[in-house]
Design a protein around this nucleic acid. Structure first.
Length: 445
RNA sequence: CGGAGUGUAGCUCAGCUUGGUAGAGCACUGUCUUCGGGAGGCAGGGGCCGCAGGUUCAAAUCCUGCCACUCCGACCA
């Protein structure tokens, strides 16, 4: 993308309404524009990151054997009355009437609808297990939206639902989700720690929240520092293997890690003192097993091996997609701007032409732009007639991980500069070597 | 919902106390110089001063009501 043709409304000054760094940077980098309290328009750069995160989540869900679907944002109140949540949910649920005076609601989550879909379409234990998920906009009329996309009223969430014959297999689904989430977050360059959580209005006994440590996190967290040494890494896992999933769950949840909701001081004090940590965290996902709570109420059953009708065992699992954009920035920025992890960056490489209009510089940039594009990389080419400082500042603000700097001085020696956004280190090499370096850097991401 | 604030140019803000026909910096347009880390000069464009009432010869400024947004608290992916 040539910057002169792109829509990138960056701001030099910090908008007054933004309190936390991710919100400020998202506004300054022209990623979002607030439409009203807790509701945002996603501009090209922000939308690109959002889609990239979505893509990773889809890939990892499908890898784990889950099936993507798309349910409506507006749902009839009827199913919610059956489950009892139409009254239980409170004013956080946005209720709407259509022209026939029928009660509708803007879905804050979708247990009812997905249970209805599954329950009315399967009848035998042979149809199980199944896991459906969607990535869809949700609305929760928060009392106080804040922190930009981190606590919006409208937000994009991946919500998944597993349907199993027994508690035992449903717990395998629970574990499988935990494993798949670990992998998902790592691909985004995040360390998200599973912590024992409170089940809240969805209910159920088994639940973990995934938290990214960050100073601006809304939850206070307590953990054994050993947990931060764990990483899922490149390991191969068979998602169908109950043993393997269980093993990973045990590895990642055996050390103390809880939010303030479930914190147990006595238990925490059994952790050796030098490993006890208190910090703040951003919740970026949560998994639940809640048994037959919804299937009982909505009559979602199958016939088992013995010919008996049994209610489906269920769990639900969420990843806050739009929140992740903010969380990643909270976890990865400096005083100049955002530093995108390579896995989610909107553009993989920036080209800065130091002397726009100079034949040699323009030609070299053009050639780099073409070659990188052919290699499948997304490039943002700063072809503005601007001063070098302004170009560097823009690319640093919007966080492109790698910058190729092309100027007359370097070209005289046949080299361009390759600069890492993260370390600031620059290396001179030929344009050909720079292309090869970028291709190599992104291979496998 | 309780408490505290703020609405003036695209952005950051001054002006309001003590009413007199709207300001700065950045951004934008034209032009000249400059050009390897957010340059400078000259010339320009841009405002129902959140909305509606009221007081007054006169309201951004005073009064009343409303709306929007932000912050602190309870709530949440």
């Amino acid at each position: 993308m040539r910057l002169t043709r792109y829509f990138l409304p960056v701001l030099k000054e910090t908008p007054a309404e933004a309190q936390i760094v991710s919100h400020r940077l998202m506004l300054r980098a022209g990623m979002v524009k607030q439409a009203s309290a807790g509701i945002y328009s996603w501009l090209p750069l922000g939308y690109k990151v959002l889609r990239r995160i979505e893509e990773i989540v889809h890939e990892e869900q499908i890898r784990a054997g889950h099936h993507p679907i798309l349910m409506p944002t507006l749902q009839s109140a009827d199913l919610w009355r059956e489950s009892g949540r139409y009254d239980a949910y409170g004013p956080e649920m946005l209720r709407i009437k259509d022209r026939q005076d029928r009660d509708l609601l803007f879905s804050p989550t979708a247990e009812e609808l997905v249970t209805d879909i599954m329950g009315s379409n399967i009848s035998s234990y042979r149809d199980l297990p199944k896991t459906l998920y969607q990535i869809q906009w949700k609305f929760r009329d928060e009392i106080r939206p804040r922190f930009g996309v981190m606590r919006g009223r409208e937000f994009l969430m991946k919500d998944g639902y597993n349907f199993d014959l027994s508690k035992e297999t449903a717990l395998h689904a629970y574990n499988r989700h935990l494993v798949s989430y670990l992998r998902t977050y790592e691909r985004m360059g995040l360390q998200a720690i599973p912590m024992r959580a409170d089940s809240g209005p969805i209910g159920g006994d088994y639940t973990h929240e995934f938290l990214v440590l960050a100073e601006t996190g809304e939850s206070e967290v307590f953990y054994d520092s050993e947990i931060t040494d764990l990483s899922f890494g490149e390991r191969e896992i068979d998602y169908d293997s109950a043993e393997q999933c269980q093993g990973v769950l045990e590895e990642f949840t055996s050390r103390y890690a809880r939010t303030d909701e479930t914190h147990d001081a006595a238990l925490f004090n059994q952790v050796p003192e030098e490993r006890r940590r208190t910090a703040r965290g951003i919740e970026v996902g949560q998994i639940f097993y809640f048994g037959t709570m919804y299937s009982d109420k909505l009559g979602a059953t199958v016939t088992d091996q013995n010919g008996d009708k049994v209610a489906l065992h269920m769990g639900s699992h969420g990843i806050g997609i739009s929140r992740l954009v903010g969380a990643i920035i909270e976890a990865s920025h400096d005083d100049k701007g955002i530093i995108w992890p390579e896995g989610v960056t909107p553009f993989q490489v920036a080209i800065v032409n130091l002397k726009q209009g100079d034949e040699a510089c323009d030609g070299a940039c053009e050639s780099l732009y073409q070659q990188l594009g052919k290699a499948g990389l997304e490039v943002l080419y700063d072809d503005r007639d601007e001063r070098a400082g302004a170009k560097f500042a823009t690319m640093e603000l919007i966080g492109i991980p790698w910058r190729l700097t092309v100027g007359p001085r370097g070209l005289k020696n046949g080299v361009v500069e390759v600069t890492s956004r993260r370390t600031g280190e620059a290396e001179e090499m030929t344009p050909e070597a720079a292309v090869a370096r970028m291709v190599e850097t992104y291979a496998g991401i």
